[in-house]
Design a protein around this nucleic acid. Structure first.
Length: 542
RNA sequence: GGUCCCAUCGUCUAGUCAGGCCUAGGACACCGGGUUUUCAACCCGGCAACAGGGGUUCGAAUCCCCUUGGGACUACCA
């Protein structure tokens, strides 16, 4: 049976790249009827936060990626936090030392920096100078007494060329003379990533490792470690990286970068208000704009919202908050460097699972094309693609996350909103078109441009009044009855339906974008419709 | 700088491993038209690519070499 895994280090929200890695592993496991496990790589005590780990699990769940073993559900190969597996790592590290395959080092960070600088200067590889004779336990005691850091390095066997067989790249050859003895145990006693990953993958029975290209050059190290420990060598597949359409690697730095750029372009912005929104001082904000420092992500988000700046989505939650649904994300992420080979692009999860195949993973970098993502979302938002019930669930989650007034609607109403707004590109669009019906009449937001264009030009106001009177006579308010009435009115006046519908739309919604006008009237009901028409006439009818 | 990886329309890609079916197919974007009560959606049409050079071959997008370009790595981070 095949076993795959996703092993994030909990340093923040799950981002697009991580989600793609997780998805590919998950897809392969599900396709082959294997197991998919989740492991938290929290060996770097400086970077971890507990909430970050929770958030990653939450993001995966939102995407619909489930795991058979993991930190929250346990399993036969636990624990699934690397920080809780120290005794296991220690055992193997000791084994390597005993077998003279690894050795202690006592260098200070400064000494290491010197080594690196010297190598750079001489334009050669930074290869650690392995001692002729390995330090003994007594040396360790002595170093400790002197207050020197104690680390353990793996002694790279340099007798033969290393051949990595990669499922997507084929055979990659590396000369071991290019490799430096790397640290497997840090001075704080934790194993490094290389050591922990090799041990855990072996113990957890991982058969396939799908990860980013950035790990390709780590693989020879891992393979050497596996051989030294007598472990099995899993199958590797290194995926190309995903680059951003704004150039460069898709990284979380893009959000602060964009905000900074936008803020610079608005020299008249109220810095005090923005600083308040972010909960930082004006001085800090100025430092940020000048590129001297970068505040935390929540601060960035808050400032962007107040400044009205749309930040590029990088983390999975960003897409959730922007009105994308998980079906879209899963589909789109899967197509980042993979395709089924038969021309299909818009696919459901079960179709993806069915079609997935490592041999069709692309070698070249893929670009994260937001326009295409939008098109994917438009497709998945259609009820023939995703059941209305599911869409309703997503819509509610979206509304609650964004604290929208529309959240007060019941499921039947939400489903109705989705139905009448068929063709929307995001949940955000549906929300924007719907919110007019969920706010108090007095709180109606009027779009000045719409008012000018539709009501104050020509006989817009007069038409609104006429339409209002005609509607008042309506006995039963349904989308159909309203439609009949408005069409009849347009015919009677010898004008297009637009001439009748637009003033009414602005009159009751406050802007020119709404659901179909008949549905809009029905949703509001006659009483509210009349009230809003009167209110609008009073406000703009001089 | 060194090591490794990659290279088809603006973008994602199919085709490359097993050379002829490729006057290079699809999708997104864009442009034009249609439909329409707004925004979308929808329908029809169009633009547009084998990075450059050299080989191998009857024949190359496909195989080989060089050049150029892009990327990853080069940590007591994962």
């Amino acid at each position: 049976m095949i076993v795959t895994r996703f092993a994030p280090s909990p340093t923040g929200y799950l981002h697009v790249g991580g989600a793609r890695t997780a998805l590919f592993n998950w897809l392969l496991a599900r396709k082959m009827g294997g197991k998919f496990l989740l492991r938290i790589e929290d060996t770097d005590m400086k970077r971890n936060t507990a909430t970050a780990a929770d958030q990653v699990l939450k993001d995966l769940k939102w995407l619909g990626i489930d795991w058979d073993e993991g930190p929250d559900i346990g399993g036969p190969n636990g624990p699934y936090h690397q920080s809780e597996r120290r005794d296991i790592y220690d055992k193997y590290i000791q084994q390597l030392i005993d077998e003279q395959k690894a050795y202690y080092c006592f260098d200070t960070p400064e000494e290491l920096t010197q080594l690196r600088l010297a190598a750079e200067k001489e334009k050669r590889h930074n290869i650690y100078p392995r001692p002729e004779v390995f330090p003994t336990a007594a040396d360790v005691e002595k170093a400790k007494a002197e207050g020197r850091p104690v680390t353990v390095r793996f002694a790279i066997p340099r007798d033969e060329t290393i051949v990595i067989t990669d499922e997507v790249r084929g055979e990659v050859r590396i000369e071991p003379t290019e490799l430096s003895d790397f640290i497997i145990q840090k001075s704080d006693g934790f194993p490094t990533y290389h050591m922990a990953v090799v041990i855990d993958d072996e113990l957890m029975g991982v058969t396939h490792v799908i990860r980013g290209q950035e790990h390709l050059m780590n693989t020879p190290n891992h393979q050497l470690l596996q051989r030294a420990l007598g472990f099995r060598i899993p199958k590797y597949a290194h995926m190309s990286v995903t680059v951003s359409d704004s150039g460069g690697k898709l990284s979380k730095r893009e959000r602060p970068k964009t905000l900074k750029k936008e803020l610079k372009a608005k020299p008249d912005a109220d810095l005090q208000a923005l600083a308040n929104a972010g909960g930082i001082s004006v001085e800090d904000l100025e430092l940020f704009v000048r590129g001297k420092m970068v505040p935390d992500m929540p601060v960035i988000d808050a400032i962007a919202e107040v400044a009205g700046v749309h930040l590029p989505e990088i983390n999975i939650v960003d897409f959730f908050r922007s009105g994308y649904i998980p079906e879209t994300m899963v589909n789109f992420l899967a197509m980042l460097g993979w395709n089924p080979g038969d021309g299909r692009e818009i696919m459901k999860v079960d179709e993806l699972t069915e079609a997935f195949d490592l041999s069709r993973v692309s070698k070249s970098n893929s670009l994260f094309d937001r326009k295409k993502l939008l098109a994917f979302n438009t497709e998945h938002l259609k009820t023939e693609m995703t059941p209305l019930e599911t869409l309703t669930k997503h819509f509610r989650a979206y509304l609650e996350e964004n604290e929208s007034p529309v959240a007060s609607a019941d499921d039947a109403m939400l489903a109705h909103l989705i139905t009448i707004n068929e063709g929307a590109r995001t949940l955000e669009q549906i929300e924007q078109k719907s919110r007019f019906a969920f706010i108090a009449d007095e709180a109606m937001e009027y779009d000045e441009k719409a008012i000018k264009k539709v009501l104050l030009k020509g006989d817009g106001l007069a038409m609104l009044k006429t339409v209002g009177e005609a509607l008042a006579a309506l006995e039963e308010v349904t989308a159909e009855s309203v439609e009949n009435l408005l069409r009849g009115l347009a015919e009677e006046k010898q004008v297009g339906l637009g001439k009748v519908a637009q003033p009414l739309r602005v009159g009751i919604c406050g802007n020119t974008v709404s659901p179909p006008i008949f549905d809009a009237v029905q949703m509001l009901g006659m009483e509210t419709t009349q009230k809003r028409i009167a209110q609008t006439l009073e406000k703009y009818g001089n």
